[in-house]
Design a protein around this nucleic acid. Structure first.
Length: 399
DNA sequence: CCTCCACAGGAAGCGCAGGAGT
DNA sequence: ACTCCTGCGCTTCCTGTGGAGG
């Protein structure tokens, strides 16, 4: 009997190197971002001659290459500065992980003085340290990704730009990135004019562009001839239709490849992409179900349970129709279930609020009762597969 | 036509956790 | 460290609505 891992590795695969088709990988050449990269290069070029550079604010939806482009330009800048012995430094901060002025500043200073640990030092000290570093005559680029996540952005930007004004030698250049279009309007006017000296918008990719991007990745990630062109087109089309998010397109093709491997297929075809899309959608729904507030989960669980109990009805035309539930009976079963799980039972008013929420999420469908029913009530129908939803919630409740 | 049923959904307010302000 | 404030989840109370049934 062969070793378990040996077996696994020896298995047929469509992948040459799976890493190239994960969202973590950034290609050396960023397609369809030449303009943006060019403009960023122009803005930052002055630093190499000891001049100041304008601050730049970049925005655009997720998966439009903002982060990748910024990091790309930054690394080129630092490489070139290293070769030319120019006094240029820079660092990248993801503000989702460093979401306050203090955290951002200490991350920056820690990057410039890797041998020191500034944990616990006062904000003023860290600020001075940064001023000192720049004051030695360095041009510094600070890439602040997802700046909108910083709680006190105004203070952070204000502090940094004031530092820039105070410096006699050296300079600071802020390159802010955000995918929230509204963010700019919430800023203090002074912060806004400071951060947005230059602005840039990254548009979403269209289907053709996504196709080219995917093709490039596919060449690297898949073995030759292992992925149909039609499959790449379809994945690009799906992603373009929804959002123009390159990351989503890449994920879709990766999943399709995994499906092909699982089924022992030699190549990835459109069929795998379709199945991958369904799979991804299912994951999103199940994830949504699990992150629902407790009471809404219980209500949904009651609906799923009742739907399964009730055999699908045959309509007059012979088609089967999903069981339609009355609002009242759903509430009654919800109460029973909540008691069984020893959870608090909410009032029927709040239950109705849960129903509205679930409908907003698209997890259920409701219609007003018409003729043939006494009183006024809502008919409730599950939007997705009852079994899967029930299983998902059961898993969540026992965990 | 009136009444009742079986709900829908608005308004006000309560208790609590957690963040902001000092 | 302290209070103050705010948002969330929820309850209570209430008025509205359209069909069923007498």
């Amino acid at each position: 009997m062969a070793n378990l891992f040996e077996q696994l590795l020896a298995r047929e695969t469509v992948f040459r190197d799976r890493n190239y088709i994960t969202p973590h990988y950034t290609p050396d050449k960023l397609l369809f971002r030449e303009q943006q990269i060019q403009k960023m290069t122009e803005i930052l070029a002055g630093l190499l001659n000891g001049k100041r550079a304008d601050n730049l604010f970049i925005y655009g939806k997720v998966g439009t290459g903002k982060t990748a482009s910024a990091r790309h330009v930054l690394s080129h800048l630092l490489d070139f500065a290293g070769q030319k012995n120019a006094q240029v430094s820079g660092t990248y901060v993801n503000c989702r992980n460093h979401n306050s002025k203090y955290r951002v500043l200490s991350k920056i200073v820690k990057d410039f003085y890797p041998e020191h640990n500034f944990m616990g030092y006062s904000a003023a000290f860290i600020y001075e340290k940064l001023l000192g570093f720049a004051g030695e005559g360095r041009g510094i680029v600070l890439v602040l990704d997802e700046v909108d996540k910083v709680k006190d952005v105004d203070e952070l930007i204000y502090g940094l730009s004031r530092a820039n004004d105070e410096l006699r030698k050296g300079s600071l250049c802020i390159l802010g990135i955000s995918n929230n279009v509204m963010f700019k309007d919430d800023l203090d006017p002074r912060t806004k004019s400071s951060l947005c000296q230059q602005e840039m918008v990254f548009p979403a990719y269209n289907a053709e562009e996504l196709k080219s991007i995917l093709s490039e990745r596919a060449k690297l990630a898949f073995n030759e001839g292992c992925v149909d062109e039609a499959a790449v087109s379809l994945a690009a089309a799906f992603a373009a239709q929804e959002s123009g998010d390159a990351r989503k397109a890449v994920m879709l093709l990766m999943r399709a490849g995994e499906l092909a491997d699982k089924k022992g297929l030699a190549r990835v075809s459109e069929e795998e992409v379709r199945r991958a899309k369904r799979l991804v959608e299912e994951e999103i729904i199940l994830n949504m179900v699990l992150t629902l507030p407790q009471q809404e989960q219980l209500v949904l669980y009651a609906i799923a349970g009742l739907t399964l109990e009730r055999p699908p009805l045959k309509t007059l035309t012979g088609e089967t129709e999903e069981g339609v539930l009355y609002s009242g009976e759903v509430y009654d079963t919800y109460v029973k279930i909540a008691k069984k799980f020893k959870e608090t039972v909410v009032s029927s008013r709040w239950y109705r609020e849960c129903i509205s929420q679930l409908e907003m999420y698209g997890l259920i469908l409701t219609t007003q009762s018409g003729k043939g029913v006494k009183g006024q009530t809502r008919f409730i129908k599950l939007g997705y597969d009852a079994k899967k939803i029930k299983e998902a919630i059961e898993k969540g409740l026992t965990a």
